[in-house]
């Protein structure tokens, strides 16, 4: 689909409107409920563990360049580095993309400055390893082993290297919290990491961690948008079933709005 058809455009606009509406109503101070997400609650525990053991942590923002999953990963990174700076726990961030690397460096620098300890920031801890998938993985394996990492966070878009990172992390005894929107990699995180954030819990993470009204509102808006999709799908199922019995009911053709256009 290269261009929005009218119904598709409307659908997207409705979704956006719901999200924006909820964001602005949350900003006006409406209190919102979010259910517990165990994996995300474990982040603080993992930071605490590294602090107690006096060993560093590792955070991998995934393999994608600057994209939406990476932006989400970076905002989780911001939460983690802020706490890490508070407790003076080292956090090593290996990246595989120059632009992501630069933003990660900025985030860390700021976290330390905000805690009033800018001198604690070590530029060597935010590293660009390589933009080659497996060179990056081999570097991460090296870091996990040599730095005796106590906690490892894997957030972002991962490909096949997910299991290399998670299993090595397990072998060095790190506590691992992982989450990715790359669905086919989630099983590997589930088997190897201690806590896994599943599916779009990943996009709920920053709201859950920061409790900022904008993000909470957005999360509730996303729920409404999903509800819209559920309603459309249920309606579609009922209508295709009916269309099978009553082919003459032409109003049922609304389902074709979503028919793939050849292009």
């Amino acid at each position: 689909m290269n261009h929005a058809t009218l119904p598709v455009g409307m659908l997207i606009l409705v979704i956006c409107a719901l999200i924006l509406f909820k964001i602005f109503s949350a900003r006006r101070g409406k209190s919102l409920f979010i259910r517990r997400i165990p994996g995300l609650s474990a982040i603080d525990e993992a930071i605490g563990r590294a602090t107690e053991m006096g060993r560093p942590m590792m955070f991998s923002p995934g393999l994608l360049g600057l994209g939406l999953p990476t932006l989400q990963a970076l905002s989780i990174l911001k939460h983690i580095t802020t706490i890490a700076a508070k407790y003076r726990t080292r956090i090593i961030v290996p990246t595989c993309d120059s632009v992501v690397f630069t933003i990660a460096e900025e985030i860390s620098k700021e976290a330390y400055t905000n805690e009033g300890v800018p001198e604690q920031f070590n530029p060597d801890d935010i590293r660009f390893l390589s933009d080659d998938q497996f060179a990056y993985a081999s570097g991460c394996v090296g870091i996990l082993n040599r730095e005796k990492v106590a906690s490892s966070f894997l957030f972002g878009y991962f490909y096949a290297e997910s299991l290399i990172l998670a299993e090595t992390g397990h072998q060095v005894g790190a506590m691992q919290v992982a989450g990715t929107p790359a669905i086919t990699q989630i099983p590997f995180f589930i088997t190897a990491a201690d806590y896994t954030i599943i599916g779009d819990e990943f996009y709920a993470a920053s709201a859950y961690l920061s409790r900022e009204p904008t993000l909470l509102g957005s999360l509730v808006g996303q729920d409404y948008a999903k509800a819209v999709l559920v309603i459309i799908i249920i309606a579609g199922i009922i209508c295709t079933t009916l269309a099978g019995f009553y082919p003459s009911w032409h109003w049922l053709t609304w389902m074709d709005w979503f028919k793939p256009v050849s292009q």
Partner: peptide
């Protein structure tokens, strides 16, 4: 969009 359309699966039919 394609995924939404592909989810309209009839439960029964002639």
């Amino acid at each position: 969009v394609d995924r939404i359309h592909a989810s309209f699966k009839p439960i029964a039919g002639h």
